[in-house]
Structure formats: structure tokens, C-alpha cells
Amino acid sequence: MIFCGIDIGSNTSKAVLLKNNHIISTALISGISNPSASAEKVFSAVLEKRDLKRHDISCVCATGYGRYEIIIADINKSEISCHGAGAFFSNSTIRTIIDIGGQDCKIICVDERGFVDDFVMNDKCAAGTGRSLEIMAQTLGLSVSELGYIAMKSSKSLPVSNKCSIFMELDVMQHLLNGEKTAQIARGITITTARRIAQLAGKLELRNNICISGGVSKNPAVCRDIQDILKLKLTKLNHDPQLMGAIGAAIFARNKEIVS
């Protein structure tokens, strides 16, 4: 039996196929606003890679902010449970997942079965999320990956407000006007992002091993600053960290099928 997990995030949509506890296909698309259309597209893409048809799939589980609107899904699960299950599947020593997505960030603790036993999520403010990093990078005239790369080079940082994205942006603009070095501004941004996450982490007890998932996990500077500020060592995942939600959803699709 083949199970599918679809994760409709705010910036990207991901799909994963699971067969005999192995990932047999993955797909990632970006930039579609309608959750239903995104789901259709990413579902087709993941099937196409293995030349499969819809009826080959036993159960589809949707997750992500658009999970309620996806008609092709049989069930839906919160992205928190899915990221937990996905990371645990990828590396079963993981007990804490720091997930930094486009619009939100979450810290998830899982038990020895990979089930969520605690979590926290940021409030509505975007500071500390992928979206805010994107805005800051744009202000500096860089892409997000360039920002991460440049920030890695700087040991010095300039102060950037941790209050909200608007204040952050104003500070970045001010530094630019003052002719400060881009690398130091970039480092200020990644440190502030890491601080926001540390703030969130204070609300629960982090347990080892700890990993990062979500799009921001690909930003080396943020990862480094998180390790420094939270004084922890991050454990690597065995799959693309951006796919954790979709992997988790596929696991729930499989569990559902087993239960029924």
C-alpha cells in the first residue's frame, strides 16, 4: 500500500509517498496561492515521478495551513503533529523539533513513539519566521540564502530590534543609511531571529536530540546562532528538513489505514 502526505505551507507545497515504511517519491512546488490548486499540483507531481495514478494511493493526509480546503485528502492533521512524526521518522533519536516555517515557528517535543507531547508556537507576529527573514533580505537586496551565507562570514553584528518585523526592517534600513557593512547587518538579523526562537523555546523544556525543520533550516547562519544562543547542538535529519511535514502526514495516512 502507498500512502501520501501533503503539506500546504504558506510559501511552498510538499508531497511525499510512503511505501513499506520507505519514502518512494517527493515533490516540492512554490508560489501558488490557492491551497486546493497547490495540493492538486504537488499531488500530481509526486505521483508522476513514480508513474502512479490516484487510485494507487490508499490514503492521503493533508497538513499545513491549507489542510482543511484540500478535497483530495482523506484526513487532516495539524502540522505540529506532522512535523513531529516526520522528524522522528527521519531520525528516531530526535525528541525536539524546532520548525521555522514561512509564517510561523514552532517548537515540538515528541515522545519515544514520535507523538507530540508538548509544543509551542509563535503568536501572530511574523518576527522570527521565514517571511520576516525574506523581508529583511529584500531590504538588503539579497536572497534569503545569500543573507545566510553573508551572515556566516561576520563575527560582528549590529543591533536589530526584536520587537516585530516592521521595527526590524526600520533598523536594517537605518544601518544601510549609516553605511554599515552588509555582513554585520545580516548577522544582526540572524541573531535577532535566533533570539525570537530562544524566547519561544523558554516556554517548554527542550529535550535532546534537537533538530531544525522547515525552510529556515537551510539558513546556516540562523542555525549557528540558534545553537549559540540556546547553547545546544543540533542533530542532523536524514531527509530534506523542508519535507518533515509531508513525511509526517504520510505516516498519519498510514496509521489511519492500519487502524481502520
Binding site: 495539524s78 505540529i80 503533529s81 507523538f115 507530540v116
Partner: peptide, 9 residues
Amino acid sequence: TRIQAFYEK
């Protein structure tokens, strides 16, 4: 999402 995840937990 928070509430759903909370119930799942």
C-alpha cells in the same frame, strides 16, 4: 492549528 495540535497531543 494550535488547538488541533493540542488535542492531538
